[in-house]
């Protein structure tokens, strides 16, 4: 096999993955999605590392990837716990909510216009209701609708 070609291709793909993750991190506002984007950047790095590992015929790269996976797992655990907590406090996953942490005299960022919800973007398939409709806790309802 052409090892240098292999390296070239892998590095290209790793770079694309990294860049996509970076774009996602900077553009998306959902905290969980942002976190996934970070994981994607890690994947880009991992791909490059494995390629380098093969190119240099050295285990080091693969070892590093192994540790990346382990650290990513730890990170995911902590980050998800934190996100969950933040969500408990604010009731939203929007990163922009936490811009309160800015300097005192800075202008707040305000969404001027939110595009309308597209039907085709509906995520959950609706089930046909069956049986008795469960009684909904009004507080719970109120709270959920804010999400």
């Amino acid at each position: 096999m052409n090892e240098s070609a292999m390296l070239y291709n892998y590095l290209l793909i790793g770079g694309v993955l990294f860049a996509l993750g970076l774009i996602g991190f900077m553009v998306r506002r959902n905290m969980i999605v942002m976190f996934l984007c970070v994981e994607m950047m890690l994947q880009g790095i991992s791909v490059s590392l494995v390629a380098w590992s093969r190119f240099h015929d050295d285990w080091g790269g693969q070892m590093l990837v192994l540790f990346i996976i382990a650290v990513a797992a730890a990170e995911a655990g902590i980050a998800l716990a934190l996100i969950l907590m933040l969500f408990h406090q604010s009731g939203t996953l929007d990163m922009a909510f936490w811009q309160d942490l800015r300097e005192e005299d800075q202008q707040a960022f305000v969404d001027h216009k939110v595009p309308e919800d597209d039907d085709r973007d509906r995520i959950w398939p609706t089930l046909t209701p069956a049986g008795i409709e469960p009684e909904v806790d009004p507080d719970e309802q109120l709270h959920r609708s804010k999400i």
Binding site: F25, M26, V27, R29, Q99, R102, E103, Q106, F109
Partner: peptide, 12 residues
């Protein structure tokens, strides 16, 4: 100080 927008993405 104006750099401290509070927007995480801006920091990134």
């Amino acid at each position: 100080r104006p750099l401290q927008l509070g927007l995480v993405q801006f920091y990134a």
